[in-house]
Nucleic acid binder design. Structure first.
Length: 863
RNA sequence: GGGGAUGUAGCUCAGUUGGGAGAGCGCUGCCCUUACAAGGCAGAGGUCGUCGGUUCGAGCCCGGCCGUCCCCACCA
């Protein structure tokens, strides 16, 4: 074995070996309880980023542990066709050749996208292999494959039959660049600078007029009314009158509507039903006709008269200019306001009246809310439930049609008479009138429509498959809070509606990966760490461990290269710890699950600690507290196993009487450490397992369940003495090589023969038993059950010793004062539990005794 | 305008039934002790944002204030 851990060498080959052996298939534990997780499907165009790395680290931590625990555990991988995103990528590629998708036509364009998918679509799965993600690739799915497309169609048809899917003319969010409708949630609002423009609309039946305020002057071309609040005294007299729309010349009525806020602007609102959701509703209530003035690229149409052909921003300037020329333009004040942007391309959204398909979400949301209230699904951390409830209770219907080509085409056909046929199989004639002149809806479904079915469509639904039967509901879903609404809520709705069961009982929410300064990692800031670069430099194990340790439940994850370097150093530590063991074991470590019967206190101590650690580690993992779990294991491994146990094992290995049991103990402990770390650091642990255990994969080894060994309590006393001696040495600048004689008083008979050998090895100190406490000329090291004294003869630095003791005294004074104050309080004695009081009394007595001894010592030192 | 999170060591963060303040990194000193200098040993460093309340006892529970961040909402 090489003396330095090299992640590249270690990570090169294991993935293939695991996959070849079928380790990642649930069939490897044929009798195990099912435990299924489905991956949040990455976009097929995607490349692995830190968010994936974090999410996958959680998933893999869970699935690898469950597999070792004997579950028929499976992590189902797959990718999402990502409608708009993928279409954009391919369109950009075409643009290089000077082509648009219209040049190719629908059929050839889609074929082009499939071609792209064939060529680049498995990039991300290759990257996942580098991360070590233990997915069952034999079950890999794609949201546009035949099975999932069938599921999509089945759901659409059934929802339509139940009147939960409908087609309607509504104001939707339109992206003029993508040329498609978007759902509410796909719009990102930002506070952008803008201006509030005042325009006066003159009365048609007399002098004067009404002044309205707007941030979108150009939409006045589509105004068909002016609205005021019914209780607004300023306008009460004008309700029912008409004004003449400047530039256009249309006569439009003044109506009264509750939706108007009298406090805002002038209290009078121009109403543009075709281009504003609120205005649309006002228009419906008052019979104001919508006038559409923008086309699909947000260019003014013929309805805009002389402004036809201008895009909306040019039109805004031109309209203002024209209004000013007409003398009806009033104050223009600067004002920031929330402007919607497309979440895919950031283009400013245009609210537009158009005919779209919608999901009626109210009836679907109810059971999904109830399921979380009833605890059928729980969020971890729980506080996300509030957001979930708030969201679900305020849903608007979900616009699911998209005017793009890449996606599941809506299975609806129209005949010349306006009948709609929705069918599982492509029909050849209208379902109502039998007309054969039918045409299919041009639109495709929102990508999230298919994502919502993912927990069961991947398992074969609507067919009744063995996998569906076994693996639905899934065990747990892990995701970032940013897609709770996009995805989690919708899976809940669809899962409950079509399978009558929540898709997963546990929903674990994690944060975003941020840089060392706490900024969101993004390509534009240039602060994004590329997981593949990190893996290339430090290995996937280091990346995974760093992410898992840094990720407190539900919190954002600040990630600095230093964390990764530290994690890699831990890998090196592990590597060398095993190297030591291999040099000292005669054969291999005991097989998984085997523990030696041990007699020596040091060996018993480490096994007892191991048992405690495993128990706590398991509990933390079951609560999805991986950061705490790994922190615990890391601490145990480095500080206790390596820093203490391995050092204490050295003399034991050299002694014929203790050699064999110490070899077994060391082997068993390190073997279990490897197993416990495996879900977090799969590669290095597998490599080391091969050397140390030499049998099977750690990936399929039994999860450690160490025996309940009673812990010898005087090992801790011994460790205290060692530390005290080292501290004394360090405080006096004494060489580590210079041997000490430590005189020990042992009234309780705690000291055993092994102390002498160990003390020599760990602290270069010799034990000299004494009958009574030393006084003048000595200094006291420890004052527990065992007291240790060192002769000050020949000790140069008396001053340092005085300082050391004084510091110790002042430290004790603080604690003692606090304890005394507490004990002097009658209310405390009365109300605090007896054991707490007793503990406090013992503490005070101990502090007092130590203080007295130190004071006496100080006197003896002549100060 | 609602809702949520957060404020603990120089930095990033733990601290879950309220009962003697922790980790990692950084920093200081000593040490190349044959598993590991990507290491070992020892150490310094905190009025737990602030004010008040509950309690025998508060980093933890309650309220006010200050700071930072996020989400939601039809401010035209």
């Amino acid at each position: 074995m090489k003396p330095t851990y090299d992640p590249h060498a270690v990570e090169a080959d294991w993935y293939r070996r695991w996959e070849d052996a079928g380790v990642f298939r649930p069939e490897i534990n044929p009798d195990g309880e099912p435990y299924c997780m489905v991956i949040p499907p990455p976009n097929v165009t995607g490349s692995l980023h830190m968010g994936h790395a974090l999410n996958h680290a959680f998933y893999d931590m869970i699935v690898r542990r469950k597999r070792m625990q004997g579950f028929a555990a499976v992590w189902v991988p797959g990718t999402d066709h990502a409608g708009i995103a993928t279409q954009n990528v391919v369109e950009k590629q075409l643009a290089i050749e000077g082509l648009t998708r219209y040049d190719l036509g629908r059929e050839r364009f889609i074929e082009q996208v499939w071609e792209w998918k064939r060529q680049y679509g498995n990039r991300i799965s290759e990257q996942m292999r580098k991360l070590g993600d233990s997915c069952d690739w034999t079950r890999e799915r794609f949201t546009m494959d035949d099975g999932l497309s069938a599921a999509v169609r089945e759901v659409f048809v059934r929802l339509y039959a139940e009147d939960l899917v409908y087609r309607g003319n509504r104001i939707i969010n339109w992206c003029p660049r993508c040329e498609t409708a978007l759902a509410e949630i796909e719009v990102e609002y930002e506070d952008d600078p803008g201006e509030l423009v005042h325009i006066t609309y003159p009365f048609t039946d007399g002098p004067g007029g009404v002044t309205v305020a707007t941030t979108r002057a150009e939409t006045m071309l589509g105004d068909t009314g002016v609205a005021v609040h019914p209780d607004d005294d300023r306008y009460a007299a004008h309700i029912g009158r008409t004004v003449r729309l400047p530039l256009v010349g249309r006569d439009i009525p003044i109506v009264a509507d509750d939706a108007v806020d009298p406090e805002f602007g002038t209290g009078a609102v121009k109403v543009t039903p075709a281009h504003d959701p609120t205005d649309f509703e006002i228009g419906e209530r008052h019979g104001l006709e919508p006038v559409v003035i923008f086309d699909r690229q947000a260019v003014v149409t013929a309805a805009g008269g002389r402004f036809e052909g201008m895009d909306r921003f040019s039109a805004r300037a031109a309209v203002k200019e024209a209004l000013a020329a007409d003398g009806v333009l009033g104050d223009v004040e600067e004002r920031t306001h929330a402007v919607g942007h497309c979440y895919r391309c950031s283009t400013v959204i245009e609210p537009l009246l158009s005919l779209q398909w919608f999901v009626r979400v109210g009836p679907l949301a109810e059971p999904a809310i109830e399921a979380v209230r009833a605890g059928d699904s729980r969020f971890v951390p729980q506080r996300w439930e509030n957001s979930y409830f708030h969201w679900m209770e305020n849903l608007r219907d979900w616009c699911i049609s998209r005017q793009i080509w890449w996606g599941h085409r809506i299975p609806a056909w129209y005949c010349p008479d306006g009948h709609v046929t929705v069918a599982r199989q492509d029909p050849s004639a209208c379902g109502d009138c039998g007309s054969t002149g039918i045409t299919q809806d041009e639109d495709v479904l929102d990508t999230w429509f298919s994502s919502a079915l993912w927990p069961f469509s991947t398992l074969g639904w609507p067919d009744t498959t063995a996998d569906l039967d076994r693996f639905y509901p899934n065990a747990v879903l892990i995701t970032g809070f940013d897609i709770i609404y996009f995805w989690v809520a919708r899976m809940m709705k669809m899962g409950l509606h079509f399978l009558d069961e929540v898709p997963f009982p546990d929903i674990v929410i994690h944060g975003l990966v941020r840089d060392a300064e706490g900024r969101k990692m993004s390509k534009s800031i240039g602060n994004a760490l590329d997981p593949l670069d990190v893996i290339a430099e430090h290995g996937a194990d280091a990346l995974r461990l760093a992410l898992l340790q840094a990720a407190s439940p539900g919190q954002d994850v600040p990630l600095d290269m230093e964390w990764i370097v530290a994690a890699r150093k831990f890998g090196n530590k592990l590597w060398n710890g095993i190297r030591f063991a291999l040099g000292n074991l005669d054969g291999r470590a005991p097989a998984a699950g085997e523990y030696p019967d041990v007699a020596h206190p040091v060996n018993r101590w480490v096994l007892a600690r191991l048992a405690e650690v495993v128990e706590r580690y398991d509990r933390l993992c079951d609560e999805y507290r991986f950061s705490d779990a790994l922190g615990l294991l890391y601490q145990f491994t480095w500080s206790e196993v390596f820093d203490w146990y391995v050092e204490m094992a050295k003399p034991l290995l050299g002694d014929e009487a203790t050699r064999a049991e110490t070899q077994s103990t060391l082997g068993a402990v390190l073997r279990d450490v490897l197993a416990l770390f495996h879900p977090a650091m799969p590669f290095i642990t597998e490599e080391l397992w091969e050397s140390l255990v030499g049998e099977g994969f750690v990936a399929t080894a039994d999860w450690p369940t160490p025996p309940d060994v009673s812990s010898p309590d005087h090992v801790a006393t011994f460790m205290d003495l060692v530390t005290a001696i080292r501290r004394f040495r360090s405080g006096h600048g004494l060489s580590p090589k210079e041997s000490f004689e430590v005189e020990v008083l042992d009234p309780e008979g705690v000291i055993e023969p092994w102390w002498a050998e160990q003390l020599d090895a760990l602290a270069s100190a010799k034990l000299a038993p004494i009958g009574e406490a030393r006084g003048a000329g000595y200094t006291r090291l420890v004052a527990g059950p065992v007291q240790g004294f060192i002769s000050l003869e020949g000790l140069i630095d008396i001053e340092a010793e005085v300082a050391r003791i004084q510091k110790a005294i002042s430290g004790i004074d603080g604690d003692l004062a606090k304890a005394d104050r507490k004990l002097a309080n009658p209310a405390y004695r009365e109300k605090a539990p007896a054991e707490v009081v007793a503990k406090e009394e013992a503490k005070a007595a101990d502090l007092r005794a130590r203080r007295d001894k130190l004071t006496a010592q100080l006197a003896e030192l002549g100060s």
